[in-house]
Design a protein around this nucleic acid. Structure first.
Lengths: 186, 186
DNA sequence: CGGTATATGGTACGACTGTTTCAACAACGA
DNA sequence: TCGTTGTTGAAACAGTCGTACCATATACCG
């Protein structure tokens, strides 16, 4: 009896809140401006998510879900070479459409350095690549259990993303990836 | 006539404020706790620095000054090989004593992504390395004006620092740098 | 001493924060 | 229609923020 709950509302506001965070960043996030942009109220945000902290956690989970989904459907099949895979990853991650995700990624990392207790599984954002890259980079790695090569490859990608987002110099960063690919060729 | 100004006071509080920011981070920096930790008052901080923004700018300049000073006196002379130079850079930057600087570095980068207008010369933090590395990596670079090799080298260092500060896995990141050095050998 | 400049302390302002409280409204079953 | 449950608005609470204003203290010169 009584009014039936509306589970869609929470998911809808979560989706739009994720858009907002991707657009405006995590640093200065505040409930009142967020609610205003979402045509709702801080009251409802707390009603749906309990607290700001839980809201942020839900938004980060949703953002990661989107990123992972987009990546798996974008990367080429395992048939192509390791170098082509690496180039595809760089092209995909450095594309302007991914800029909001990249910014959020760096923002979360920086906040995690100051408050590690809020991100209990933040290492997974690094180690989660090993399984995927271990297979797609087959031919470069030194065996199936090799984590060193994926570590280096992703360090290059993240380091070049750091450079690109700071300087905006796409040409130079693209050339640096070319150089790395050349080094990988035996 | 009148009471003589005390220029040392501002520098002394700047030094201690820099210590505080390196220890506590930039994100949640607030005048009142900062002043309490420095045995002074928010009133005096504004009196000496004009505004919080100028204080932060002064602190960041001081932090960069310290980092640059420490680095130039630590790196080996130009006589050693490029690989030894790279290893020295990694050893120095990944040392636990540098962790506060590294954290501040990533924090500033993340904040710069959201508010680029506050960091008009943030690209210098990247390109400033080219002159130094261009000479010390002589033998690996493709000429004196080559910016691609320093870009890749520093991307590896920053990417591995990102990994290390997230996962804390020093062994794996050290091995990844070994792998990169092996790739650099012709 | 007075005059004058720098250095401080105290306090309050206005704007913001996340959160709570109270009340009302909406949609359903009986 | 009534009770019940989910939803929503308005307002207030307790706090923090950067900053400005006003008075006072301190240290120098003449």
């Amino acid at each position: 009896m009584g009014r039936p709950p509306d589970p869609d509302r929470r998911e809808a506001t979560l989706a739009r809140a994720t858009d907002y965070v991707l657009a405006h960043g995590l640093a200065g996030l505040s409930l009142r401006p967020l609610a205003a942009a979402l045509d709702t109220s801080p009251r409802m945000l707390l009603y749906d998510f309990g607290s700001k902290q839980e809201l942020v956690a839900a938004v980060l989970a949703e953002a990661r879900r989107r990123g992972a989904h987009r990546l798996t459907e974008q990367l080429p099949p395992t048939a192509v070479s390791a170098e082509e895979h690496l180039r595809a990853i760089w092209t995909w991650m450095s594309a302007p459409e991914r800029a909001p995700f990249v910014r959020l990624f760096f923002e979360v990392h920086a906040d995690g350095l100051a408050h590690p207790e809020n991100y209990p599984d933040r290492a997974e954002a690094i180690t989660g690549w090993f399984d995927t890259l271990g297979t797609t980079l087959r031919g470069i790695t030194a065996g199936p259990g090799d984590t060193v090569t994926p570590t280096l490859v992703m360090a290059v990608v993240r380091g070049l993303l750091f450079d690109l987002t700071t300087t905006g110099d796409r040409h130079r960063t693209d050339l640096a990836l070319d150089r790395f690919c050349a080094l990988l060729r035996p």
